[in-house]
Design a binder for these strands. Sequence first.
DNA 1: ACCCTCACG
DNA 2: ACGTACGTGAGGGTC
Length: 879
Amino acid sequence: MCEKILLIDGHSILNRAFYGLPDLTNSEGLHTGAVYGFLNILFKVLGEEKPEYLAVAFDRSEPTFRHAKYPEYKGTRKPMPQELKEQIPLLKEMLEKMEIATVSLAGFEADDILGTLAKKGEEKGMDVIILSGDRDLLQLATKKTMIRLPRTAKGQTVIEDYKEDQVQERYLVTPAQVIELKALMGDAADNIPGIPGVGEKTATRLLAEYGSIENAFSHVEEISQKRARESLRENYQMAQLSKELATICTNSPIEFEQEKFQLGNIFTKEAYELCRKLDFRNFLMKFDPAEVNENTIEQDFFICNDLEGCEALFEKAGQAEAVGIALLWDKEGVYGAGLALGEDEMYYVPVEGMVTAAYLSDKIGRLGKSTTVCSMDVKTMLKRADLTPDANVFDCGIAAYLLNPLKSTYTYEELAKDYLDGKLLPGKEELLGKISLKKAWEEDMPELEHLACYMAYTAFATRAPLKAKLQETGMWKVYTEIELPLVFTLDSMEKWGIEVKGEELKNYGEKLTVRIHELEKLIWQQAGEEFNINSPKQLGVILFEKMAIPGGKKTKTGYSTSADILEKLASENLIINDILEYRQLTKLKSTYADGLGAVIEKDGRIHSTFNQTITATGRISSTEPNLQNIPVRMELGRLIRKVFVPEAGFVFLDADYSQIELRVLAHMSGDEKLIKAYREAEDIHRLTASQVFHIPLEEVTPLQRRNAKAVNFGIVYGISSFGLSQDLSITRKEAAAYIQKYFETYPSIKGFLDGLVEQGKEKGYVSTMFGRRRPVPELKSSNFMQRSFGERVAMNSPIQGTAADIIKIAMNRVYKRLLDEKLRSRLVLQVHDELLIETWKDEIPQVSRILEEEMKGAANLAVELEVDMHQGNNWYEAK
DNA sequence: ACCCTCACG
DNA sequence: ACGTACGTGAGGGTC
């Protein structure tokens, strides 16, 4: 086997990555997408080729010998975008840290360096691989030099390989003739003119017949095509110059520094740190942990796998002031636990022999009574650890969420980076990759021990800085009095779940299917062809091209077919109504009938997950399935609620706050008139209409009420005349007039909202009544749209967030009272302003009282918090 | 993986 | 001139 050298065309591959892939930015806002793409392809090719030598060539900014011959060379290039430009030094830094040789030479392009090194490599008897995005390089292909050209096909990167023979096969010319081809055809990118009137076809034919431009010229009279013949005659000199320009120099004055090109370990500690900094998580696992880990935490990891040892360990842990705990489990089993007794004392306890899942559950439960159990995610741990609501726990994920609710994940390695002076720990993905916990456990992988210990370590070590920051920011109370107790409340709701009648759900779905098929036929009939109605793309073409319904474009990718657009066209086009009904029914079928049916568990109940660290405002969210968006507005959809039923002997009590956000607004703004309105009014929207339009309450028309209601909503969302005009289908001017009248009617509201924006700009965040913060970085944006968004967010978040705080407080109190008063009734759902309690029939009066007292009493506002309550034998009836 | 659409508050 | 209401999650289509 020959030795092999890989030569890379640096700029060309970087360019390709930049234009071919979505841009990325790291947490500091650096553009990194092109560097990421470059490394991706580098790793791929290194894996395939396994070369002994490697060099990356770059162009330089100085003029080259080609400019001396032809000053217009590359003269029409567009300037490189800043986002790409700034990635060049970044790539060079990365290559340097990977100890990969980079080569450049004043007066020469990267191509010339590649050509020269390829030739020298061959002379040394090596196989040569050239990686570039530029087809011009094909002229360098030989029997021993292969050109590899990556391209994107169907979202996947595939590499075309060319040795001498493949060039001939694909382009019907020899590598040397690639130069002639380019000279004949010209190259717009390099500003090489070529022969006008000669394209790829003619050029290839000329070369097949005459071999070269010179020979073609000497037989110019024989060329049958008139245009080509005359053009070649006229432009022969230019063609010769083009040929010179297109020829890659293979004897540039560059050394073949064999030693420097030698490929060593590219996965150095320095490169690792840069990958970290750039958030290239996918690459981190390529590095050898032993090599890159500067921290010596792993020295302090111990395994404890016998019962006696565990007894002693938990005994000692129970006496510590706090312990970090990480419980490793998934649906298939419990695998072990990590314990941190100090920053330099971590233990891994695998489930094994006498140390069972139940043993760990019990031991962790006991720790909750004697010490503070710190965890990255307490609620998840509660599913397999016997901790009661009175346990002492610290939840690092929730603490970090409060400190910055805009992050999408709160993993231990992120928390270590953010709260332990930038400490770099390997994350789960990096340790285990795609390997499941179960597999790692079965095979006794050391990475599982490391995962458990790092997680426990982080939980332990971040507690103090997180607590300090929460106190500094005034959020310690929100944390201890709202969020932490809520962990237990939500855990209980998840565990109870809610019964769903699977059979009825199936019947409902089948009824939908019948009508869906009818509609499908009707729609196809009217369209005159069969097509996928679910495809907005196909539907757009059918409606707005084939049927030529006037409606026009909206989105970047094609026509908008959303319901609000279609509804405007419905009156004149019968097909539209059928499409709208079809859409409605397929939604009900796929998301609800089928979707919910698929997640009913063996106990006949659905156990959703309530996420506490997702939203920017402080609300909770619900997933797998989402039980916070079960249909209610349309009757047909609302019927789904009939399949949600209480267990035998129970009924549902459903309690919801009446206009909680508007009441919060009244309180926070202190607007006397709005507060007074709430004290008097039965129907706030009607009263708003009466006051805004200066008409007696009795004379308010339904339309006026509807408009006033929309304005009330708009205010809460961070009003804009455009948004309101869209909602009400009125002009912006009219919308602006409504808003102005509203602000005149309730004068303190405007001042309050402006104050929120002002505060957001000044402090960088806005706050709820209880001190929960939301950062609003958009307010500093130079982009108008972004800034406007920031302003609306600044106005909305304190209102939405305060309402979220209030219902969370109410939930905790309701949950506590149900426990304290030893009731069988249980909280099962929260839908932002609504609580659903599965109520033991004998307890109905008591639970009603509890709900009313705790919901109304959750906050003391200048206006009453009003609660509507209903009872029923299913969720439909209880609304 | 991303967009569109639509369900809820 | 920009081109939007605030906050979510899920399913289907497309590339």
